[in-house]
């Protein structure tokens, strides 16, 4: 499972970085989305990988923490998802405004001379 997850994060991050460095605004926003998926998976994996373990412990008595998943990264990743979703939506608005004002989808607002 570790290999699969790290491959997924790696591929997402690599494609995200490639796309961010492209000159078209649409490519940049897709790149940012992919990169934020990679980061969210990464945060999630920082609570150590466990299979079929609940994140919340029962009340009272001694509980073995190794039988449960770490709830903190799960809480963090929810916040991170919401925030990156909202900021990406905002970026989309600016992107459309830029397309409307400049008439091109180049990130600098003008295509470079060939």
């Amino acid at each position: 499972m570790e290999i699969v997850l790290s491959l997924a994060i790696g591929v997402l991050a690599a494609s995200g970085i490639w796309l961010i460095l492209r000159p078209r605004t649409f490519q940049v926003i897709v790149g940012l989305c992919l990169l934020s998926y990679a980061v969210n998976l990464f945060i999630f994996s920082m609570g150590r990988l466990t299979m079929a373990a609940a994140p919340v412990m029962p009340r009272g008595g001694f509980v073995d923490p190794t039988a449960y998943a770490d709830p903190v990264p799960q809480a963090l990743v929810l916040t991170a998802i919401v925030i990156s979703f909202a900021t990406t939506a905002l970026f989309l608005v600016v992107l459309i405004a830029s397309r409307g004002v400049t008439g091109t989808d180049h990130v600098d607002g003008q295509d470079r001379e060939p």
């Binding site: 961010i20 605004t25 940049v28 940012l32 990169l35 934020s36 980061v39 925030i83 990156s84 900021t87 990406t88 905002l90 970026f91 600016v94 992107l95 405004a97 830029s98 004002v101 400049t102 990130v107 600098d108 607002g109």
Partner: peptide, 16 residues
């Protein structure tokens, strides 16, 4: 708008 586009892209990457 152009400056804002760059600013937001840089800062979103920074946040990640």
């Amino acid at each position: 708008i152009r400056a804002g586009l760059h600013y937001i892209a840089v800062n979103l990457t920074g946040s990640l």
